[in-house]
């Protein structure tokens, strides 16, 4: 199946600084794809290159198999984009704003609009100028979902919102978006607040300093990245585990984080006869922290 987004060796510099430095990425249709990175990792630059808001220096980008520079209109009629800072025409009501957006679109799902306004308890007659930060993002997301595009691009949709609001609304909006034709509803969402997206993301790329650090299916990632805890009857022995991402010893306890090969590592620790041992999967956020801020494993 042709990828919805295809990025090959993308490079974009600001002056001599490389914001994106050889990025590769493929997003298959129907997926909810996470693009994780710290602030300044190159997420927004990449997204702006996808949307032809920035020119790439070198490398290839295809959206729906088309070139976003040459086929800009054909590409953009099939996607919507919500930037991290949303802006409206301040004299408009929510109703005016949606009518304005709908005028540019081939489709506008009024039922979906009504349903989401109701769920967020938003009155369409309110002025967009009097909305709280969270409400502004809600209005922007409703505006991005109602045209039922094949691709929804969200850049840091939850940053700056309080935790309660962001947990609630991101899942309702993604649920509402996918409803109807899930095979042709692809989400590409960039964020550094990964916890809210734990169950929503099918697959992700972690980007750091403009380069891909890790791309994996979420299920595979949680299978591979494992934390093993062991408690010994004596102070924990020194552990030599070459494949460990981190090893910590604290009194009688030891904690090892590994990427794959955990059966081997478990067997190795078991041979040291701990009195108790447990393993658990890392969350996506913990995987992000373990791979990006990679601390040197104690040798």
């Amino acid at each position: 199946m042709e990828p919805v987004i295809e990025i090959r060796d993308l490079v974009r510099r600001y002056g001599r600084q490389e914001a994106v430095n050889g990025l590769n990425l493929d997003v298959a249709p129907g997926r909810c794809y996470g693009f994780f990175g710290r602030n300044g990792a190159g997420k927004t630059t990449t997204i702006k290159c996808l949307l032809n808001l920035l020119r790439r220096d070198t490398g290839g980008i295809r959206l729906f198999g088309m070139d976003p520079v040459r086929d800009e209109v054909a590409v953009k009629r099939r996607l919507t984009y919500v930037p991290d800072q949303v802006a409206f025409h301040p004299w408009m009501t929510i109703r005016d704003w949606f009518d304005y957006l709908a005028a540019f679109r081939e489709r506008w799902n009024t039922e979906k609009e009504q349903e989401l306004l109701r769920r967020y308890e938003l009155d369409a007659q309110r002025s967009v100028n009097r909305l709280s930060r969270g409400e502004r993002m809600q209005v922007a997301l409703i505006g991005a979902v109602c045209p039922e595009p094949e691709l929804l691009i969200l850049d840091e949709p939850t940053s700056g919102l309080d935790p309660l609001v962001r947990r609630e609304f991101i899942r309702t909006v993604i649920g509402a978006y996918q409803e109807g034709d899930p095979a042709n509803r692809t989400v590409f969402v960039s964020t550094h607040l990964i916890t809210e997206f734990e169950g929503l993301i099918d697959e992700f790329t972690i980007i750091d300093r403009g380069q891909e650090v890790l791309s994996l299916e979420s299920d595979t990632a949680r299978e591979r990245f494992v934390r093993i805890r062991a408690r010994f009857t004596e102070p924990a022995p020194a552990l030599e585990i070459p494949e460990a991402l981190t090893i910590r010893r604290d009194g009688r306890e030891a904690e090892v984080v590994v990427n794959g090969a955990h059966d081997r590592v478990v067997a190795q620790i078991e041979a040291l006869q701990p009195e108790e041992m447990a393993r658990e999967a890392l969350s996506l956020e913990e995987i992000f922290l373990a791979t990006v801020a990679k601390p040197r494993a104690a040798a």
Binding site: C32, I174, G175, Q178, E179, P182, E198, G199, L200, D202
Partner: peptide, 10 residues
């Protein structure tokens, strides 16, 4: 999906 905070695909 919404109750479990999961993606509908899952």
């Amino acid at each position: 999906a919404e109750q479990l905070r999961l993606n509908r695909n899952t």
